[in-house]
Design a binder for these strands. Structure first.
Length: 286
DNA sequence: AAGAAATGCAACCGCGGCACC
DNA sequence: GGGTGCCGCGGTTGCATTTCT
């Protein structure tokens, strides 16, 4: 007993969109909006397409101000940093990159950026670069986790220090990790150390510890640009760390990470205990 | 020049969340 | 409180294009 299909796949057109279909959808949405119902939209717009297909086409291609390709170094840094913290939550990552879609970011990561990351790690390993490279998730998630002192680029849960790896070694980046648990499994989400917070796994205690080392200037500037506007409201300086990422200190890291990179395991665990939605998540993440 | 392999990306698929009844 | 249907997400697929041999 599976879910009923959203549309009759045999009777709707599939595959690439023609310019005529694009124009039909674009003009309909511009005139009427999506009307809160993608399933009904194709019929109203006179399109022989599945509603989901229309939604995807609009969101990923026809929507105004969409950018394709031409990723900047700053965007690379943001993607790297966010991926290290929250994994493949492409919609969240894309929401921090104006004009980018989750699909586009995902494709960009899978086809280019991941390879770039692997190459950087391989190069660093070859030159004896020092990377924190735990082969398993942090102990808070996996009690059996053990620290590894070596870096491997041959697949699996490989982590490296940061973007660019040779410049700051505090951040932990999972570029080849298994996909994180889906949303409904928040209690099992890896409490990967916040990208902002510089963390290293203590091989003796098995505890992730924040380090006072600052992020590189480039990464700090990129992250400041992206996140601080959300934290500074209406001319009033609500968030006291104007150069937060550039001057990472424990308290600041904790405050921002609590907002953008909350410890999911703790939060959702507490939420499960109280049978309530977790509190404290930024709107941008929920 | 032609075929093979690699790459890039649009589109599809299936699932879970959530709102509504 | 349970059922239903839509939305949004992340993973995967398929195909066109580019590069290599």
């Amino acid at each position: 007993m599976g879910r009923a299909p959203c549309c009759d796949k045999a009777s709707v057109k599939r595959g690439p969109w023609s310019p005529e279909e694009d124009e039909q959808l674009r003009s309909y949405v511009q005139r009427h909006g999506i009307g809160g119902n993608w399933i009904a939209l194709p019929q109203k717009a006179g399109l022989n397409r599945c509603g989901k297909s229309c939604r995807l086409r609009w969101l990923n291609y026809l929507r105004p101000n969409i950018k394709h390709g031409g990723y900047t170094e700053q965007e690379d840094q943001i993607i790297w940093s966010l991926y290290s913290s929250i994994g493949s939550r492409w919609s969240i990552i894309a929401s921090k990159l104006p004009g980018r879609t989750d699909n586009d970011v995902k494709n960009y990561w899978n086809t280019k950026l991941k390879k770039k990351a692997m190459a950087a790690v391989a190069a660093s390993a070859a030159t004896g670069g020092a990377f924190a490279a735990p082969a398993t998730p942090p102990p808070a998630l996996s009690p059996a986790a053990s620290a590894s002192s070596s870096v491997t680029s041959s697949g699996g849960d490989v982590r490296f220090a940061a973007y660019p790896p040779q410049h700051h070694q505090g951040l932990t980046m999972r570029f080849d990790a298994p996909a994180p648990q889906r949303r409904q499994q928040h209690t099992e989400l890896a409490p990967v150390p916040p990208a902002a917070a510089v963390a290293q796994l203590d091989a003796t205690s098995g505890v992730w510890a924040r380090q006072p080392a600052p992020a590189s200037d480039a990464v700090a500037a990129a992250l400041d640009d992206v996140f601080l506007p959300d934290l500074v409201g209406g001319g009033e300086q609500l968030f006291p760390y104007g150069d937060f990422f550039g001057g990472l200190q424990d308290r600041a890291a904790l405050e921002l990470s609590a907002c953008y990179f909350p410890n999911m395991a703790e939060m959702w665990g507490a939420a499960a205990a109280s049978d309530a939605k977790p509190q404290g998540l930024c709107n941008t993440l929920t």
